[in-house]
Design a protein around this nucleic acid. Structure first.
Lengths: 242, 242
DNA sequence: ATCTCCTCCTTAGAGGCTCTAAAACTTCTA
DNA sequence: TAGAAGTTTTAGAGCCTCTAAGGAGGAGAT
């Protein structure tokens, strides 16, 4: 009873869903996160409040949907940057990917803050609902970064701390994650990868939250200095942006 | 007309103000940031909605007041940790201060997230209203960290990047800040200080926002590894926690 | 061609929120 | 003791989330 005769309806519905998410994003960027309300979004697309509940069953679900959109867009931007340099060295591709991430962040600070400078559903509840679109999009995003470090490791293992330098408890935590992910990186390499990720996350979040305004008017060179640092940690040659 | 005959009233008012801020904090920790509403806080202290406007002229002002409270409490905790080791080496005192910061963050994750994982009024508007209690408390907090690095620099200058390694634009931005602060650190040293601060901020915010749950169940050793790293950058001997 | 069903949309409304206005109650002072 | 000052209340406008009930229109079945 489904696929055959519901195509037209389904297309219309899809278009409306897209329009709603665009309106939500527009409100976010123009009037801030607090303005992304069911009522305001409904007004924006020309329907009256409760009608929107035919598309999203709650405000939280709308929020999750646009969050997933942002993750997917950022993922695509980073993958494009990576794939546009398919013939370049792995290290150069990683740098390009990281630069693409900041490029998106500064071009879309509200969206970046929306998805990253926010409390994440705790691991507990993520294990209960692993397959929401939001969580799938976030996982896919994570793999853009992690996947490149796996490639890098496969191509040219980077320096890692000696086994006795890594705290045994941390090693165990990382080993559990490595196992769940198929052991593409040993715990020591995962530790280096996480260190890199944490530094990029922190710097970008501070920037989009204006936490660095008090001292820096232009964070781009700070980001480049960080990338140079990370390149050093990963045994890569740092190449300045094109 | 003020001080002499208004003491009793003023005392009562002060007590009510304190009670309101405690209620707001209780709501934050027990029901999350969205539950800190004027109405809910008023109910909590046993008065009805609009009465609270005699103490705080808007929701934003209440938020700013408890934010200032949190900054002051964290500042005090860190200063205590520092001063409890007045006779120790500067490096050990700095490590103790940083550990006190994480101690407060994990003991009060909601409060830490409330003040740090939030958009800051942009520098523009901070320059227009520099003397709100919130901004003063935030500045005082910043000085706990920066002040110790100044002491450290005065006692034993740590290694800094060579002048030609530091991006000229960054150098200029830092020089402007150094001038405003009385030149207690040269731009190169400020750059190192900010690198340290950014790494601590990022790691602690990721932790309180559950952004590391997916891989780490215990972030303490990661924090210690970061401190060891920073100690290395600052030419300090790393000493494990007591 | 009509009938039924399903989808989409509407209005009405309960209950919460911020914040203003006006009135009432308390306390302090002259 | 009367008025001033400070505190608190109720009423209410206008926003919000979300539920309930019903209307208008196309899609398939008879």
């Amino acid at each position: 009873m489904a696929a055959q005769h519901s195509t037209r309806r389904a297309r219309l519905r899809e278009a409306t869903l897209a329009e709603i998410r665009e309106a939500a994003r527009r409100l976010l960027t123009t009037r801030g996160p607090a303005a992304v309300t069911i009522n305001a979004v409904a007004r924006e697309v020309g329907m009256s409040g409760p009608a929107l509940y035919h598309y999203f069953s709650s405000h939280d679900e709308l929020v999750a949907a646009v969050t997933a959109d942002f993750f997917r867009e950022l993922t695509a931007v980073m993958e494009n940057a990576r794939d546009a340099r398919a013939d370049a060295a792995t290290g150069e591709r990683l740098l390009a990917t990281c630069r693409a991430m900041r490029g998106w962040a500064v071009a879309h600070p509200a969206e970046f803050g929306w998805i990253f400078a926010a409390a994440v559903p705790s691991a507990q509840s993520a294990r209960l609902h692993p397959d929401t679109p939001r969580n799938r999009a976030a996982d896919d995003f994570g793999m853009v970064f992690l996947g490149q470090l796996e490639d890098l490791w496969a191509a040219a293992p980077f320096p890692v701390p000696a086994p006795d330098e890594l705290d045994p408890s941390v090693r165990a935590q990382l080993a559990a994650y490595a196992e769940a992910r198929g052991h593409r990186l040993p715990p020591e390499a995962l530790h280096v990868a996480m260190t890199c990720w944490i530094r990029l996350w922190g710097l970008l979040c501070m920037e989009v939250l204006n936490q660095l305004d008090f001292i820096y008017s232009d964070v781009a060179p700070i980001y480049e200095a960080t990338l140079r640092d990370l390149a050093g940690m990963l045994g890569l040659e740092y190449t300045p942006p094109a």
